[in-house]
Design a protein around this nucleic acid. Structure first.
Lengths: 234, 234
DNA sequence: CCGAGTTTTTGAACGCGTTCAAAAACATGT
DNA sequence: ACATGTTTTTGAACGCGTTCAAAAACTCGG
């Protein structure tokens, strides 16, 4: 994104550029959709594309966001019908696969976008997270109270792991990821039920705090660290 | 790699090329170590480098393998001293961090190599796996018999996840990943102990079979499977 | 209508990873 | 010594993502 155009024509050009890029991605695939091709198809010069989008990755990020919101629209109705937690989890997974499948070859690029931007503070994460919140709060029976609050976050982080498996899945039609997600749903549901037992519950808390310690929301608060161990390579 | 030279001089040139590349990586970093620079430093033409290494990724893979074997040499002694499982897990993690730290900026490239090659069938995975086997078999007291066989694989898969967190870790000196790994060790150890309880044990088995279903050793045998639950989209 | 200041648009270039046809060096049977 | 076939080495090129200085188009107060 990088720039929001001042004039109307600017906005139109930017929109057209984005639209063309998405079409091009769908029609020609990732490698074939070079910046030159996209720009040409949109009827602008190469460097002009860079006036509106700071990088190719930028456009990919946009595509990813579009797909996720599409997934959201597609399955948020099903999540409020009072189905079981397992069924809801499966709904989110399968809608995700369905929406993403045509762009599977973008997997590595998607992953790069996901991993390089801040984990919590962006629109994409918000969309994903809200999906998992609905999946939990709309489930009947509701999961145990003790974990109800943290379950969405757990599911969200889990889904990211599964997404990264999907991204590099080489099996035909991504069958492996499909299987993986379908199997994950009942296991998580079972896990949620077992969390009524204190032993299992404490394990859940361990795992969650683990996930947190690695992906903390607050990131670069090493501020003006008093004695920073800076290793400078010669 | 791609080619093994027929003549002695060829092998020497290849070795020199690899050596130069690794030096260059250490000294100049990833982006600055372009193929042109490496070739020039090694005193050969650009295209000649491609005669011996089929791609830049190829060289990166080589570096990664070197680092892993270095890690192996560094900590395999400590794994036979009869320390606790937790301590052994920590040994493997910290030696890994120690060896990898200078190349942290290679993280994304490393990850790409890891993810694009076959999960089980390669030298790198073998080295990693053997480390985790030692960590389990050398632990005192030994983990519960029921999970002793599968624990190494679990740890190995876990370590891959943590590695991918490390690869994109932007915190100073990868503090977050460090914390993450240090916290993971006791949790896993606790988990191993609790696996004596049938409830927890069955969860472990679920999780493991989950990891297997996603990353099966046998890959493209979609052949005539007896009753596979195949969900075909559309 | 003019000229100053912005915003939009362009062409040319850079360095990158990678490929390829062909030259050079080398080995070997006659 | 020579012709033959293989292995090693090269130079030139391609398309890619990205950058930049400068042209073109637009805006708006005088």
């Amino acid at each position: 994104m990088t720039i929001q155009p001042r004039t109307l024509k600017g906005q139109e050009t930017q929109a057209k550029l984005l639209h063309t890029a998405l079409d091009c991605f769908a029609a020609e695939g990732y490698k074939a959709s070079s910046m030159r091709v996209i720009a040409a198809r949109a009827g602008v010069s190469l460097s002009h594309a860079y006036y509106y989008f700071s990088s190719k990755e930028d456009i990919v990020a946009r595509l990813l966001l579009n797909l996720r919101t599409e997934q959201f629209d597609q399955c948020h109705a099903a999540l409020n019908e009072g189905n079981t937690l397992e069924s809801n989890i499966r709904s989110v997974f399968t809608s995700g696969l369905h929406v993403m499948q045509p762009y599977h070859e973008f997997g590595p690029a998607f992953l790069k976008v996901l991993l390089s931007q801040d984990l919590m503070d962006n629109e994409l994460s918000a969309v994903e997270f809200s999906l998992w919140e609905k999946a939990v709060s709309g489930a009947r029976p509701l999961p145990p109270l003790g974990i109800r609050r943290d379950l969405p976050k757990f599911l969200w982080l889990l889904s990211r792991q599964l997404f990264s498996a999907w991204a590099y899945d080489q099996s035909a039609n991504q069958r492996r990821s499909m299987l993986l997600m379908n199997n994950a749903a009942p296991v998580v549901a079972k896990f949620a039920v077992l969390c009524r037992l204190p032993v299992v519950r404490s394990l859940f808390e361990d795992v969650l705090s683990l996930m947190d310690s690695g992906n903390s929301i607050r990131d670069q608060e090493e501020g003006q660290a008093s004695d920073p161990k800076v290793f400078k390579a010669s």
